[in-house]
């Protein structure tokens, strides 16, 4: 995230029927918790609180530039777990900000991915994690580790993207959701794009993305409507 004078506006087009263009001021002074991890000081920032639904995005910034010891990563994961557990309600999103990290050891990336797998399994309820601000090198290592674990995660940067492993066909469905401008995608919408698929196949494909925690869903009528964790974003100084 480009932070201009420690202050930036994030435009988010929020979810589904609440597709209202919301402006959130993210002020770096809104730091309400500090966790000291050895030399690393992690700021846990409750940066955005959605007034329209239960989504909150939590931002964790490490100010040290090397993340290498097991002790540090364990403490970092523990602090994330603590946040995941203490937040009530569903559909909570945690944003992990790596913008200050220059190097993270592959073993430690794997520890973060094991935690992500626990999130995907629903150990903490319906929660979502997205990554942000990774340097090219760090993102490359995450791609390698995620692909190895056959897992995928969203990256909240421009362009909004998915890294890791996802079958091509599922990626096409995910792209359907991402590119949709109408506030959500139903099985019928998917069927329009993939005419050969039966309604149940379309539903299953969408559910798979939700189960992998790379898309959100909301009950609408008899079925579900799926949307990205964050539909669109635009960062302005």
């Amino acid at each position: 995230m480009r932070i201009y004078n420690c202050h930036c506006k994030i435009k988010l087009i929020k979810r589904l029927d609440k597709s209202i263009l919301c402006h959130y001021n993210v002020n770096m002074n809104h730091v309400n918790n500090m966790i000291h991890i050895n030399k690393m000081v992690t700021k846990v920032i409750f940066c955005i609180e959605d007034r329209f639904d239960t989504t909150m995005i939590h931002k964790i910034i490490g100010t040290d530039n090397i993340l290498i010891t097991r002790e540090e990563v364990t403490k970092l994961c523990d602090s994330i777990i603590e946040k995941l557990n203490c937040l009530s309600g569903n559909d909570l999103t945690i944003l992990l900000d790596f913008s200050s990290i220059n190097f993270i050891a592959l073993s430690m990336i794997k520890q973060i991915i094991y935690l992500w797998e626990r999130v995907v399994r629903g150990e903490f309820g319906t929660k979502f994690v997205i990554l942000h601000g990774m340097k090219t090198e760090v993102e490359e290592e995450f791609k390698i580790a995620l692909t190895h674990e056959r897992s995928a995660i969203m990256v909240y940067d421009s362009p909004l993207r998915l890294i890791g492993y996802l079958e091509d066909i599922d990626l096409n469905v995910w792209n359907c959701i991402i590119n949709n401008k109408n506030g959500g995608v139903s099985a019928d919408n998917v069927r329009n794009d993939f005419p050969g698929w039966s309604p149940s196949v379309c539903s299953n494909k969408l559910k798979k993305l939700y189960d992998k925690r790379i898309a959100m869903r909301e009950k609408k009528g008899k079925g579900y409507v799926y949307s990205p964790i964050i539909v669109n974003m635009d960062l302005e100084p």
Binding site: F103, A105, S107, T136, E137, E140, E141
Partner: peptide, 16 residues
């Protein structure tokens, strides 16, 4: 830079 990072990964993993 990506290759240097991978070089550092090798060293870091061996040290760990």
């Amino acid at each position: 830079p990506v290759e240097i990072d991978q070089f550092l990964q090798i060293v870091a993993e061996l040290c760990l």
